[in-house]
Write a protein that binds this DNA or RNA. Structure first.
Lengths: 131, 131
DNA sequence: GTTATTGCAAACAATTTGCACCCAC
DNA sequence: GTGGGTGCAAATTGTTTGCAATAAC
């Protein structure tokens, strides 16, 4: 198990830990670029990639193709509107024991999971019906 | 509720229905481009977008940013390796009743959901430990 | 004829990569 | 001094958009 982390990786982990919400790579870049020892965008991506492989951050890829990163502590799931893109967080999570079983059954080290529901929110639903 | 579909949309729906696996937009394009009345890539994207909003296809966005489309009948979930990208389909799905409850609670018309587990597969796990 | 649909190519945006520089050890 | 880590800019890739040509009704 690799334990060494680069300074950039540490900075990113710290940032993610202090944030409630998930951040995109670009968000992180904007946040960390300033300062005398600013961070480059490529470094952000490289660090996130490494952290991902260690299971220290979790990634949620939006349908836009953009990825959102968060420190692994959170376990939030979402209800996402296919029309306006609004994303509502939900608290419930009915899969923890399934995760445990899958891990054993498939010899697969599971770091985290994503659960997303897609459809139309109450604002977009009426619009669809008139279309 | 819109019911009219363009010829392109119909062709794509037909194709997705005959396929067991999910297809990327590019896959669909390759499949439908030939023939005297070939389909353009932009049309594929536009048709998929429309079908998505009607809840007729479901979309799974890979961590690569590429999206896979399938006809809405399938309800497969996956175990995906963060290192090699291998994706194992799993049969179980413990969220159907939660989906029902959320739909009511949030006034949200849910078309489908995605459930993905991420980690390291048994082949990549040993490599990580040596790193 | 009018309107919606399509194909093509150019535009976009997020991400990745090549390479030279630099800091830590 | 050596090697990994980094910044910059160029390259890549999936997707979207502008627009003129075409099909549908």
């Amino acid at each position: 198990m690799k334990t060494r982390r680069t300074p950039s990786q540490e900075k990113i982990l710290d940032l993610l830990d202090t944030q409630k919400r998930s951040l995109s790579a670009q968000d992180i870049y904007v946040e960390l670029r300033q300062g005398d020892r600013g961070m480059g965008l490529a470094t952000v991506y490289r660090a996130l990639e490494a952290l991902k492989l260690e299971g220290l951050v979790q990634v949620r890829t939006l349908t836009s193709g953009e990825s959102l990163y968060s420190s692994r502590k959170q376990d939030k799931h979402h209800l996402t509107c296919l029309q306006c893109g609004e994303s509502i967080a939900i608290g419930e999570c009915p899969v923890r024991d399934l995760e445990q079983r899958l891990q054993t059954k498939h010899h697969f080290k599971i770091f985290y999971h994503t659960l997303e529901f897609f459809g139309l929110c109450d604002r977009c639903l009426p619009m669809e019906e008139n279309a």
